[in-house]
């Protein structure tokens, strides 16, 4: 049984079809990137999995149970850090647990420490840098009781250097805690560097156009980014995207 099963999902807003017959599965502990041009309905897909929107057709199964239109099954991290400015860092990362009804401060403190945020527990978000805020936001997702994490272009607002640092950090944390991650991005390098599998979405209406299984071994290293094989893969994916957008 797969962790997550998306079956023939379709949705339209008015007369415009946004998602068309999307089908894929995700295994336990898998890192899947969803790659597609901006505005291709990737975020709509997350809203469907998160239960905020109800699909016109199709179903979503998590651990074999149907969660179509049900909330509370995933932990979501948007492009903006979405932290509450009036909460301290510690209270911010505990939000997901609070919603579920239990606070585990010890674990939160431990994870903040491991993320290099020791000493910032009592600070407010505006006192932190962009990269630090993203870390806090991701720790909030990790601490939430939900086992499926959906990241919506989490690093696209960061500068190049911080982004690379954050990608490495994300990989190391993910390898420690092994959660199933769906990662939306429009950056081919990022998708190749991070994920086990890449789903390329077509543009308007979006459907799964092609699936790539990333062959690179873990742990991934910086050298991999400069290898000829990496470039070849990048080219293949780029061609695939271009072919459809023309």
């Amino acid at each position: 049984m797969s962790k997550l099963e998306i079956n023939h999902l379709s949705i339209s807003f008015g007369s415009q079809k946004i998602l068309d017959d999307i089908t894929f599965t995700a295994e336990e502990g898998e890192f899947i990137s969803i790659l597609g041009p901006s505005g291709s309905g990737k975020s709509t897909l997350f809203n469907l999995i998160g239960g905020i929107l109800i699909p016109d057709e199709g179903s979503i199964l998590l651990d074999g149970k149907e969660i179509t239109g049900k909330r509370g099954s995933i932990s979501y991290m948007p492009q903006s850090h979405a932290l509450m400015p009036w909460r301290t860092i510690l209270d911010n990362v505990l939000l997901g647990q609070e919603i579920a009804g239990k606070r585990d401060e010890k674990k939160a403190l431990e994870m903040l420490g491991k993320a290099g945020l020791k000493g910032y527990e009592k600070h407010y978000p505006h006192e932190l840098s962009g990269g630090m805020k993203q870390r806090v936001s991701f720790i909030r997702s990790l601490l939430s009781p939900q086992s499926l994490i959906c990241l919506d272009e989490p690093f696209s607002a960061l500068d190049e250097f911080t982004r690379f640092e954050m990608q490495n950090w994300l990989l190391s944390v993910w390898q420690q805690y092994k959660r199933t991650i769906l990662f939306i991005t429009h950056n081919i390098d990022e998708a190749l560097y991070l994920s086990d599998r890449i789903l390329v979405l077509s543009n308007k209406p979006a459907s799964v156009q092609k699936e790539f299984i990333v062959p690179f071994k873990r742990p991934r290293t910086e050298e991999m980014l400069y290898s000829a094989e990496f470039l070849k893969w990048k080219q293949d994916i780029y061609r695939e995207i271009k072919q459809y957008s023309l």
Partner: peptide
């Protein structure tokens, strides 16, 4: 959105 998806 985060809160809604988390089931708040």
């Amino acid at each position: 959105n985060y809160m809604k998806m988390a089931g708040a």
